[in-house]
Design a protein around this nucleic acid. Structure first.
Length: 864
RNA sequence: GCGAAAGUGGCGGAACUGGCAGACGCACUGGACUUAGGAUCCAGCGAGGCAACUCAUAGGGGUUCGACUCCCCUCUUUCGCACCA
């Protein structure tokens, strides 16, 4: 021990390959679909096959693998599957860049990634591997689409989207830069396009319920709650005045018969207490009423021009909070149901058609936006709420002096029968009054919008629909599923959706009437694919249904999900929606897909997110080749707690490598010594243990305890690893092995062999290698670490016979006291007062009281 | 603006229910051994002070025998949502 000879690096490459081979040969990572054992399903978000594992993947799967292996040790029937999220724009663009077809490049990338996964040595059941771009997978995505359609959860409607004429596709908001297409730089315009939607809003209320999860980060729950954005308020009907004042050409059609549905403007408000302060009505140009009115406008009308301008503004600019509020008066009026006031109707750029009822009552005195708008266009401002302790003074002068709206609640003024009532109470009273009059009702709205899943893209799951002139939308029969993507297309920069030009594929007979019809050419958003993949893993080879319900009952929900925070309001919400839908059609019997969620932090370089454009990327492969998978895995877990961002450090990796190296050489050098201590001597010599070994034994069991409890609770692997290093340092400090008694040698060996067992979760290859030095293959069967069960400690060894008390005077540490455990409080006080330094400090002062905290410290309080 | 999280040495981070602030690792410094290398071993490592001690957990108050931890205020950073009526 401790000699100064040169040491070669440990042969990690050989060791890692060796154990990967053994694990595979003996199928130790395969999960059984039917088992008496309790199951544990560990899942990491699957990767998009970009051609190489990046450091984020390595971090994600290292966390998952630690949990997975712990559950294996605990004896669970553990499942950790892996697959690829292979459809979508990045894959399509990758193919375009390489002048190839995405089906080719994707499968190539999958191959590369698979071999990288193998080299990392994750405990993955590869028999269940899937890729979303294979017909065997997306067949069932299409099947689920149909089920959803049949349940009324799928619909088509025209909606306003960002459209690039050059690329002939919808652009997501983040693909529009400065009103221009990110790819071809041409002007983006708003276009009304027929799109497919999933009615996720039907589940809005249930999606707000997180009670069925065991452990989800507060942050994610808050983000989803925020995103769903439930608001309770009141819907109010404003009657239109049909022969409006400004109209000059009073044609009978316009003035008399109004369609019933259009004779009112419905608004939603969370502040019915301000209803008496309404001085205008704000509608977006897309509002059906406006659309109707515009038909009667002359071509050069200002109103028409204004509407066109607003509609063509890109969504982001238009909905930004700091965009100047603009509007135009329609010349028409409606009636405020609470007081009969005539209210001007304006078209504005700041009201959103797809929230609430798509119309807003303008209360300039009590809403900042309305206030700014009213100021600009000289619309009257009427105060109807005053702060509780103030009097309403001269109304008129007040309004002119106002610098901003009073948006808080208060006491109602100028409010008819509700005069003097508190906002809080008046809300329900006014709503009640409206209900009785039939011109309003309580209402709940959500910010959550239905999920638009149409993509005018080639590389995605085809929507299994055929359009027939006579029959309309016809679902592709089950027997014709999957609707496979045609392969004979050229993807390229210039072209529109390549599917549009595959005549052979598009033109099909209508399944109902056999007349010629056309296939839907939109494909599905890739988030549809990832919304149910966790369920497909449990029976991924099934050719007759998405998965067997009985197997799903065993495996679902996922016990532990690990992924990035970036999916909080997208993937994680969509997957919850899908799971609930699958429950409602009887496929699964649980309410939530993911019981526990760990959202891991990013790996940063120099404090920034790694990105190609910044040029601060790290290729993990480089480090894996040089220091081994065990080292890299250990580093990403040691650098910070899993949910925190971690800074990539080359030196840190080397530090982990050194630790593993030291460990390996320690066991090589002390192999014989440890072997001698492996058997508990028959004679119990506990009493004769020297203090050093007693401390080591304490270290062993305390380290195990810390690691065990951490896995049962907060899962901060960085401190676990630190504690293993610390314990190894303690073990290394024993230099007098030769002098030890048999029982001391036993505890020495125990201390040593604890290390591979604890480290197995983070650096499994080396751990197995060390373990096998002592518990090596007896026959054909290997003794894998997990088979030895989970690590456990003996609480008896954590009881010390001497304890160090810290002695404080007025809160400052003045000494310490090593004392027998069983000593009484009085004696401890006495002993504390006898410490030299304590004596000196309290000399000439009066001791007011002495507090003894059991097993920890003595606090002496002096009178000042 | 709303919501969430966070702020501790040169750095990543420990300190779990209030009880020795800085575990573990990196970097650094000195030494040993070295045909020198990303090797190994020993020692040191918050600041000030010869020392006893003092000062330090973003800043300021408070509760307490005792506060990184609890309460109040302020500042800063990151993230999410954002004209949501």
């Amino acid at each position: 021990m401790g000699d100064n000879k040169k040491k070669p690096e440990y042969p990690f490459m050989e060791i890692e390959r060796k154990w990967q081979k053994k694990w595979e040969e003996q199928g130790v990572h395969k999960a059984k679909n039917y088992s008496d054992k309790k199951k544990y399903y560990v899942l990491s978000m699957f990767p998009y096959p970009s051609g190489a594992l990046h450091i984020g993947h390595v971090s994600n799967y290292s966390i998952a693998d630690a949990i997975a292996r712990f559950k294996m040790m605990e004896g669970y029937n553990m499942l950790q599957p892996m697959g690829y999220d292979a459809f979508g724009m990045p894959a399509e663009n990758f193919a375009i860049l390489n002048n190839s077809h995405p089906s080719i490049t994707t499968e190539e990338n999958i191959k590369t990634m698979y071999s990288q996964f193998k080299a990392m040595g994750f405990a993955i059941d590869w028999d269940r591997e899937l890729s979303t771009c294979r017909p065997s997978y997306y067949k069932w995505g299409q099947w689920l689409f149909k089920k959803m359609y049949e349940k009324g959860l799928v619909y088509r409607k025209t909606s306003w989207i960002n459209w690039c004429d050059d690329c002939q596709t919808v652009l997501a908001n983040e693909q529009v830069e400065d009103q221009k297409c990110w790819r071809c730089d041409s002007q983006v315009r708003q276009k009304e396009l027929m799109q497919w939607f999933f009615r996720i809003t039907d589940y809005a209320e249930e999606l707000l319920d997180f009670s069925k999860m065991i452990d989800w980060p507060e942050r994610v729950k808050a983000m989803q709650t925020n995103w769903i954005g439930k608001s309770q308020g009141t819907e109010v009907d404003f009657l239109l005045i049909s022969n409006h004042k400004s109209q000059t050409n009073n044609s009978p059609e316009n003035t008399q018969v109004q369609e019933v549905g259009k004779s009112i403007i419905k608004i939603f408000t969370t502040r019915p207490d301000t209803l008496f302060g309404v001085t205008f009505m704000a509608l977006p140009p897309e509002h059906p009423l406006i659309v109707e009115w515009l038909k009667h406008e002359p071509e050069d009308s200002e109103i028409l021009k204004f509407c066109e301008k607003v509609i063509n503004e890109d969504k982001i600019t238009r909905t930004a909070a700091d965009t100047t509020k603009e509007g135009i008066f329609t010349g028409r009026y409606c009636i405020n149901p609470v007081n009969g006031d005539e209210v001007q109707i304006w078209i504005t750029n700041y009201v959103l058609m797809d929230y609430g009822t798509g119309a807003v009552m303008g209360v300039p005195a009590h809403d900042q936006r309305d206030f700014e708008f009213a100021k600009k266009y000289h619309i009257p401002i009427k105060i109807v709420i005053i702060p509780e302790n103030e009097q309403l003074s001269d109304n008129q002068s007040d309004c002119n002096e106002l610098k901003s709206a009073y948006i808080d609640e208060g006491i109602l003024a100028n409010s008819g029968d509700f005069e003097g009532m508190k906002s809080e109470l008046s809300k329900s009273k006014i709503t009640e009054w409206l209900l009785n009059k039939g011109s309003g009702r309580a209402s709940t709205t959500y910010r959550l919008r239905d999920w638009g899943i149409s993509r005018q893209r080639y590389w995605g799951t085809p929507i299994p629909v055929i359009h027939c002139d006579d029959c309309g939308v016809v679902l592709v029969p089950d027997s014709d599923l999957p609707v496979e993507l045609p392969m004979e297309v050229q993807v390229g920069k210039t072209t529109k959706n390549p599917l549009l030009s595959v005549e052979k594929w598009i033109n099909v007979p209508c399944p109902k009437c056999q007349k010629s019809a056309k296939r839907e050419t939109d494909t599905m958003d890739t988030f549809v694919d990832s919304s149910w993949y966790f369920a497909r893993y449990i029976d991924s080879k099934n050719q007759n249904k998405p998965f067997e319900e009985e197997i799903a009952d065993y495996w679902l929900p996922v016990d532990q999900y690990i992924g990035g925070i970036e999916h909080a309001c997208m993937h994680l919400l969509y997957a919850r929606f899908f799971h609930k839908f699958m429950r409602d059609i009887g496929l699964v019997n649980s309410d939530e897909p993911f019981l526990r969620l760990l959202s891991q932090g990013m790996v940063l370089k120099d404090g920034f997110k790694m990105s190609k454009s910044k040029g601060n990327t790290v290729d993990p492969q480089e480090f894996i080749d040089r220091y081994g998978a065990d080292t890299v895995r250990l580093f990403v877990l040691f650098a910070a707690p899993p949910e925190k961002d971690k800074e990539w450090s080359k030196e840190g990796v080397v530090g982990c490598f050194r630790f593993l190296n030291r460990l390996y050489h320690f066991f090589k050098e002390n192999e014989d010594a440890i072997k001698k201590g492996m058997k508990m001597p028959s004679k119990n010599e506990n009493d004769t243990l020297n203090t050093e070994i007693k401390k080591l034994r304490y270290s062993t069991h305390n380290t195990i305890k810390r690691n065990l409890e951490d896995f049962q609770g907060r899962m901060q692997f960085n401190t676990n690893i630190a504690s293993i290093m610390e314990h190894f340092n303690n073990l290394n400090a024993i230099k007098n092995y030769a002098d030890l008694s048999d029982i001391e040698k036993y505890y020495y060996a125990e201390a040593a062999l604890t290390i591979p067992k604890l480290l197995y979760l983070y650096s499994p290859h080396l751990s197995e290698e060390i373990w096998s030095m002592f518990y090596g293959s007896c026959s054909e069967k290997e003794n894998f670490i997990f088979q030895s069960g989970v690590f456990d400690y003996n609480p008896e060894f954590l009881v010390l016979d001497k304890i160090v008390y810290v002695v404080q005077i007025n809160g400052k540490v003045r000494g310490r006291l090593e004392i027998d455990v069983n000593i009484s409080e009085e004696e401890i006080k006495k002993a504390a007062l006898e410490i030299e330094n304590v004596k000196k400090t309290i000399e000439g002062k009066i001791v007011e009281k002495i507090i003894v905290v059991g097993g920890k410290l003595v606090s002496i309080v002096l009178r000042n």
